[in-house]
């Protein structure tokens, strides 16, 4: 055996397992999703017909799909703002020398490591039982309503729980960025007479910009993919008003067995996320040049 063939053999032995499992679990299903989206098939019968773009045309007039898209867009917008604002504020607070800093950090981060389905169930209990009790005790009308049965309140319930669960994660990333801001730079600015807000605006924020971009896009991508809370907290209700895109595709594909039609929605879903990622990489690239 020559050295060259030995090297090739070694290369194949190292790389092949990754390629095989990747192809099996990601590549083949992905290509099939695209194929399905141009077909009409119930998932069981042997009769599969090609239908061209008709799934996609039908999708444009699908009010349930559009409703889930609007819900998701609203959800993404609200959670992106809240997670970043609250996460940054917590990080700024915990970046100060205060008592029990590590304990506080641990508590804020704790919900993130729990499964979001379990989190959704915990909050379902809290909202249906504890909130009504608070309402009865205080007489506040806000807590006397059953949040999960009113569309607007159900939306804000999911937002609240999502923020409760993930804000610690955003806080951690901002905290890491804040700790990377050199102390002597801040001291120099202070000596030059810069106040707290001036130091924030002119020294800290420009230096943590990369973390800001990362967190911003992370919140958008995670928001679009939201499924677990919609499943466990509201079940998509009331009246389907809290169906996220991911949850909608799930119910169409596995609840109603619309395999091929749901696949066209899944492909559109992919295109949305791909666009978000593309914009992100462009923004990050431009930043790199600036720095």
């Amino acid at each position: 055996m020559t050295i060259k063939t030995r090297g090739r053999l070694m290369y194949t032995a190292f790389v092949a397992p990754a390629i095989i499992f990747f192809a099996l679990v990601i590549l083949v299903p992905f290509l099939r999703a695209i194929v399905y989206s141009f077909q009409d098939w119930d998932g069981i019968s042997s009769n599969i017909s090609w239908v061209g773009w008709s799934n996609y045309q039908q999708l444009l007039h699908d009010t349930a799909f559009m409703k889930s898209f609007v819900f998701t867009a609203k959800y993404v917008a609200v959670t992106t703002v809240l997670l970043n604002v609250i996460g940054l504020l917590l990080a700024l607070g915990l970046n100060q020398a205060i008592k029990f800093r590590n304990v506080l950090r641990t508590i804020f981060f704790l919900p993130y490591v729990m499964g979001s389905v379990i989190v959704g169930f915990i909050w379902q209990f809290i909202i249906t039982n504890l909130f009504s009790e608070i309402g009865a005790a205080t007489g506040w009308s806000l807590f006397q309503k059953n949040w999960l049965s009113l569309p607007d309140y159900a939306f804000w319930s999911i937002v609240m729980v999502a923020v409760w669960q993930s804000v610690g994660y955003f806080m951690i990333i901002y905290l890491a960025a804040l700790q990377g801001v050199p102390k002597d730079m801040l001291e120099a600015a202070e000596i030059d007479g810069a106040g707290y807000w001036s130091r924030m605006r002119n020294v800290v924020f420009p230096l943590i910009r990369p973390a800001l971009t990362i967190n911003f896009f992370l919140a958008i991508a995670n928001g679009f993919k939201g499924f677990d809370l919609n499943y466990s907290l509201t079940g998509g209700g009331p009246f389907g008003t809290t169906q996220s895109l991911a949850y909608h595709i799930y119910t169409e594909g596995f609840g109603r067995n619309l395999f091929t039609y749901a696949s066209s929605k899944a492909v559109v879903f992919f295109l949305i996320l791909a666009a978000v990622t593309l914009v992100q990489s462009i923004v990050l690239k431009r930043r790199e040049v600036e720095l």
Binding site: I26, P29, R32, Y36, I249, G253, F259
Partner: peptide
């Protein structure tokens, strides 16, 4: 970039 929900039906 591919979200899980795009793959789950064919998977």
């Amino acid at each position: 970039v591919i979200p899980f929900q795009t793959l789950m039906i064919p998977l």
